[in-house]
């Protein structure tokens, strides 16, 4: 099979280059990942570039991966995954679902039960939007504890989709890191530092100089609260606790230790 390259983009002829699968009549019905198309392709001397070689890849799920379920069941947060029978009470109770169409704890739990990573991948960006309000856990008739199941979900995403976490969940990941560094590293939380770091990480440093932020900082400096933050300090002999926790995490035989490198 010989492949010949034509540099269509720079040919300057003004003819627009076709988008992948553009000519498929029902293109909108097919997800991007399910379309394969070679822009320039010659087979057996015949030019079959673009639409002449388009293939639609099957979206059939052909595996229930139970090892995945076992992995989650071992974690503290996800230990009750086997209880879920998909009644939808969690999603019905959810604070976030009304805001984000694709946020559906019921479905996330199901994907984890069946090890359906292919489907889960489509929800990475929204899967971490849980606000931890525990309405789902309060109402779940089987006490699956869906709110904490979302924590297990975060672990899963981190382990299996590190690339997507880097791109789509960069800020979430960094803020979480700041939290953990403070909580485990210092034993206490410096809220002022957390706030400034987070704003910096999200690339909104300018905002810190805006009127609202400036007023707040000024107020706290004036009433002395800014200094109490500086005086917060560390618990006495915290390092022994820190090391003990880190050791525990390293020894864990579950996905919980994937982020143990604190």
């Amino acid at each position: 099979m010989a492949i010949e390259k034509h540099d269509k983009e720079n040919s300057g002829g003004g003819r627009p280059v076709a988008e992948k699968g553009e000519h498929i009549v029902a293109r909108h019905l097919i997800e991007d990942d399910n379309i394969k198309e070679e822009k320039n392709l010659v087979i057996d001397g015949v030019d079959v570039s673009g639409r002449w070689n388009t293939f639609i890849i099957s979206r059939v799920n052909s595996e229930f991966d139970r090892s995945f379920f076992e992995e989650i069941k071992k974690t503290v947060a996800g230990s009750r995954i086997n209880r879920c029978w998909q009644c939808g009470m969690c999603t019905a109770s959810c604070t976030v679902t009304p805001l984000y169409r694709r946020f559906n704890p019921r479905a996330f739990i199901y994907m984890m039960q069946l090890g359906n990573l292919k489907e889960l991948k489509k929800y990475i960006d929204v899967a971490w939007r849980c606000v931890g309000c525990y309405k789902c856990s309060q109402r779940c008739p089987k006490q699956v504890n869906p709110a904490e199941m979302m924590e297990a979900l975060a672990l899963v995403i981190k382990k299996y989709f590190p690339e997507e976490v880097k791109t789509k969940l960069k800020l979430d990941e960094e803020v979480k890191k700041i939290y953990e560094d403070m909580i485990i590293g210092h034993g206490r939380l410096d809220l002022a530092k957390l706030h400034t770091y987070a704003i910096q990480k999200s690339g909104r440093t300018k905002e810190l100089l805006g009127k609202i932020e400036r007023d707040a900082i000024f107020k706290m400096v004036k009433d002395g609260r800014a200094f109490s933050v500086l005086r917060l300090g560390k618990p006495h002999n915290w390092s022994s606790s820190k090391e003990a926790m880190e050791n525990y995490l390293r020894k864990l035989n579950t996905i919980e230790n994937t982020e143990a490198g604190v």
């Binding site: 059939v60 799920n61 052909s62 229930f64 019921r106 199901y110 489907e119």
Partner: peptide, 12 residues
């Protein structure tokens, strides 16, 4: 059909 995820499956 997995009616909860709305997708076809073929599992051995």
């Amino acid at each position: 059909e997995d009616t909860l995820l709305r997708g076809p499956f073929e599992i051995p």
